[in-house]
């Protein structure tokens, strides 16, 4: 089983991003996803910077994949996506069907990211015809749904693509045209002042009773819990999962990567460092609402 570092979902200052990935170059993982998936206004790194970083990490022996923006609204964003896909060297994680189509038109293989809505074997097979070689299921796909999908795929005589499951990090739950960080600071999206940069792990949202619930990350909303599928490793192996995706959080990433490395290279079940992912167990995603696993 391989480990991947998912795309950075937050907006960090340029130096912090470069420092993070220079450290990641020596972490024991196989695949690194790079690029901005949340907001096209986040430009601490330009497209050229991301490509330079990609080349550095590839030279360090990592498989590098360039992740696309999950929500594309403006034609300028679509044009930027085309340039990304036409980079000539690195493969793409397609996070919406615009990216799928542009890869398909160029006959380029792609990773199907978690924000594509793929819920069954037939949709997956269609996208594999289009060039999907690896699939990161969306957050709602738990062990039962994935198991059923594998069974149905086999029954239809199809094969599965590489399967990459989100094993660490906050789950991306929704996207909007509206920027909720700008809203929280009572400024317009067009005058946001790039306030996301002040929240390297997102902006927490709690209920009126103080129960942590969500995290605001610009136009994206995440669950508050940092989910950890480490303890479910035996199930993940049983489902034929090829890669575990670790999403960058602001703290402890070197330690987390080491922890998962030891887990996948060993035979035991790792201890739980983060929260239960209720979705995996067919329940509410929020760990606080999980009844039993």
């Amino acid at each position: 089983m391989r480990l991947s570092l998912g795309p950075l979902q937050y907006f960090w200052p340029r130096d912090r991003v470069l420092e993070f990935y220079r450290a990641a170059a020596s972490w024991p993982l196989e695949v690194i996803y790079l690029g901005e998936t949340v907001c096209s206004k986040r430009r601490e790194l330009t497209a050229r910077d991301w490509l330079a970083l990609a080349a550095e990490l590839a030279d360090a022996g990592r498989e590098v994949v360039l992740s696309s923006l999950a929500l594309i609204e403006a034609e300028s964003e679509l044009a930027a996506l085309e340039r990304l896909i036409d980079n000539g060297r690195f493969r793409i994680e397609a996070n919406d069907l615009s990216a799928v189509q542009l890869c398909r038109e160029r006959r380029l293989p792609f990773v199907g990211g978690p924000s594509l809505n793929i819920y069954n074997h037939r949709a997956l097979a269609l996208l594999m015809e289009d060039g999907l070689f690896r699939w990161v299921p969306g957050v709602e796909q738990g062990r039962e749904l994935l198991g059923e999908l594998r069974t149905e795929m086999a029954a239809a005589g199809g094969r599965m693509p590489e399967l990459e499951v989100i094993a660490w990090g906050r789950l991306p739950l929704s996207w909007s045209a509206r920027c909720f960080t700008a809203r929280a600071f009572d400024v317009g999206k067009d005058d946001c002042g790039f306030r996301c940069i002040e929240h390297p792990d997102g902006l927490p949202l709690a209920t009126r009773e103080g129960q942590p619930l969500l995290v605001i990350n610009g136009v994206q909303v995440q669950g508050h819990a940092v989910c950890d599928l480490g303890p479910e490793l035996p199930e993940l192996r049983g489902l034929g999962v090829d890669l575990l995706r670790l999403y960058p959080q602001a703290e402890r990433m070197a330690e987390i990567v080491q922890h998962f490395r030891a887990a996948v290279d060993g035979t035991g079940t790792p201890e739980r460092l983060g929260a239960v992912n209720g979705y995996w167990h067919g329940q509410a995603g929020d760990a606080a609402l999980v009844t039993s696993t």
């Binding site: 999950a70 929500l71 924000s115 809505n117 819920y119 969306g138 957050v139 709602e140 789950l171 739950l173 929704s174 996207w175 909007s176 045209a177 509206r178 969500l214 909303v221 669950g223 209720g278 979705y279 067919g282 329940q283 509410a284 995603g285 929020d286 609402l289």
Partner: peptide
């Protein structure tokens, strides 16, 4: 709907019942 339709898991995050599914 404030979120992009088809791409909102807020309800399922709290209930496990998915608008999409």
């Amino acid at each position: 709907c404030i979120m992009v339709e088809g791409r909102c898991q807020l309800s399922s995050y709290l209930t496990g019942a998915s608008p999409n599914r």
